[in-house]
Nucleic acid binder design. Structure first.
Lengths: 338, 338
DNA sequence: CTGAAAGCGCTTACAG
DNA sequence: CTGAAAGCGCTTACAG
């Protein structure tokens, strides 16, 4: 049998409640008994039962992480594992545990959330996807359970979230290209209904506008998926009507597809920028410049903002913006021939 | 306040113990009361408190997953996330929860294990690294806590583990190359002290032996790390004395490095095989043939074997071998010029 | 400063 | 077949 608080109490010749207070760091315990209890704890190698503690405290010190398992790039993009390490760094620092569940779709997500919250297993929930009109968010609101979303949700009222500044990220990329002399810059994006897509496209347009560069309709293509195929098709479409000097994309996979076209057509002078800075980027020919979104920080701050909320600490803001940075590689290293 | 078993009892006009029995599926409850209780549960939308249950049952239905955070290829290799999804598929099917912790080194690993087990948070532990003379394994043995290791440990006595058959995996690769006409096959491996390394090297040697091909000392190079640099150096060393017609490696990163040399020296006729089939493999030039280790299955069976143990089910064996398969790509597609 | 008691929300022998 | 009671291992008002 494992040693309990009663064993320690007996050993130290005090009441269990006193042991509990020593452990909890209660201030009103004499140094003498504190010491005696500590000795007993060490002698018996006592470790409090976390479950009993949770029951008495009505708190498990556990965060529930809901992951999508059908993501196109769950394995190709280190995004998820980076988020997970980021979360764990902060959580572990604060003595919180993390549970995770992979769910295939919104229904399953909701099922896990109901399970986690209804059975009081977790103190708070971390969501990694936010759909438009997200039922999980609605539900968590309804039952008033603490949660945080990685990725800005449609409606940010009363919800905690962390995200990159997608507008600024793309704005910076386009501005950078303009400074390098580019004027005709094409854009290949993913599903246009995503917030992320809107923000990035806005950033693209705004940067061009500010610098007085042209925004031509057929320089902008948005596709249904973040896949290589989509990138390939998009690049083909663009080249039908135009020959840009640079192409920006909203995902490395799109950029890979675009790059394939450029290679096939031997268009060596067109610059190309990816997004997410996946490990694959540096292995492209030419190696691909890409925007690093610092996914680990997204996780870190998600955990931080949620735990602060759980501990009723004052929140300066209901969200946190993680900076992005462009990793420059060969694909933006080309001499402008225009 | 959340609804408890007492509320349900009151609503159904029975004792809490009866409600508990209905939930637990006890056979000796009349259909009539069972129905009444079920109605009350539905009406009040009752969900048992998992923590209270755990305390009463002395079991949390939770598995603790210990992950290394300093792994060279934590982000480049989808190994870990695949393991995690594999674990979750089986665990979720069986109603188990999963906690994870990233640890920087053996000491931290041990700390988390002590925490998880000592505080009774988890019913069993899943380890993803086994060192020679692993203190974590020793400790878990000492306290007699259920655990499973992904990757065959040094001493398999009395421990649960899952792994690929590394001997056979490499044996098959080399045999395959021999059938394609190769006779002079080089080997680039990682740290030789790893079980995995020994097994793969043995598989290489055995296959050559069986087929009567040559095993030359300086065709085999083992490096300290699974990195691109190491692969690069190793390939250089090999080419100093020999010109093999094919090269096998024990990791894709090693193969990438080797491939770099081959490209630089324009040795287009040398076949190359990677290991782990990372997403990067298909993006190489030429695309890299690689051994898929089915990491998701490793996770799945790790969870399965551990949960079976936890539920005192009969175990046919204390380990499970997950098959590997060679994914053929351009790098083994070359015409033999020898 | 410390202890006895009640309570967290379940489960499960025990009794009927 | 069902209920009253004790127990899982903690915490925390309450009293002194």
């Amino acid at each position: 049998m494992a040693v309990t608080i009663r064993d320690v109490a007996k050993e130290a010749k005090v009441a269990p409640s006193t042991v509990s207070r020593v452990i909890g760091g209660s201030p009103k315990i004499s140094d003498e008994t504190k010491e005696r209890v500590m000795e007993a704890i060490k002698k018996l190698n006592y470790q409090p039962n976390a479950i009993a503690r949770s029951l008495a405290n009505n708190s498990t010190h556990t965060l529930g992480l809901i992951l999508p398992s059908e993501e196109e790039d769950l394995f190709k993009n280190p995004f998820f594992i980076q988020i997970m390490t980021g979360i764990s760094v902060y959580a572990q620092k604060k003595g919180y545990y993390i549970m995770y569940a992979f769910s295939k779709n919104e229904n399953e997500e909701l099922k896990f959330i109901k399970n986690y919250t209804g059975s009081k297993l977790v103190d708070g929930v971390i969501l990694l996807t936010s759909r438009t009109k997200d039922r999980c968010i609605e539900y968590l609101h309804e039952i008033n359970y603490p949660f945080v979303i990685v990725g800005r949700p449609e409606n940010t009222e009363n919800v905690l979230w962390v995200d990159n500044d997608n507008f600024q990220a793309m704005y910076k990329v386009v501005s950078y290209l303009i400074t390098k002399g580019h004027r005709k810059i094409a854009y290949i994006g993913g599903p246009e209904e995503l917030n992320m897509s809107k923000d990035r496209l806005d950033g693209y347009k705004r940067a061009l506008q500010i610098h007085g560069a042209c925004i031509k309709e057929n320089l902008v293509i948005q596709k249904k998926d973040f896949t290589e195929e989509c990138g390939y098709e998009a690049m083909k479409e663009i080249l039908k009507h135009n020959t840009p000097s640079a192409v920006v994309t909203t995902d490395d996979l799109l950029a890979f597809g675009a790059n394939k076209v450029l290679r096939e057509m031997k268009l060596k002078d067109i610059s190309l920028v990816g997004f997410n800075n996946t490990p694959l980027a540096e292995y492209q020919y030419p190696s691909l410049s890409s925007v690093d979104i610092n996914a680990n920080k997204l996780g870190y701050y998600a955990a931080k903002i949620l735990i602060k909320k759980l501990e009723n600490k004052e929140l300066i803001s209901n969200h946190y913006i993680v900076e992005t940075n462009l990793v420059e590689r060969e694909s933006t290293d080309k001499v402008l021939s225009i």
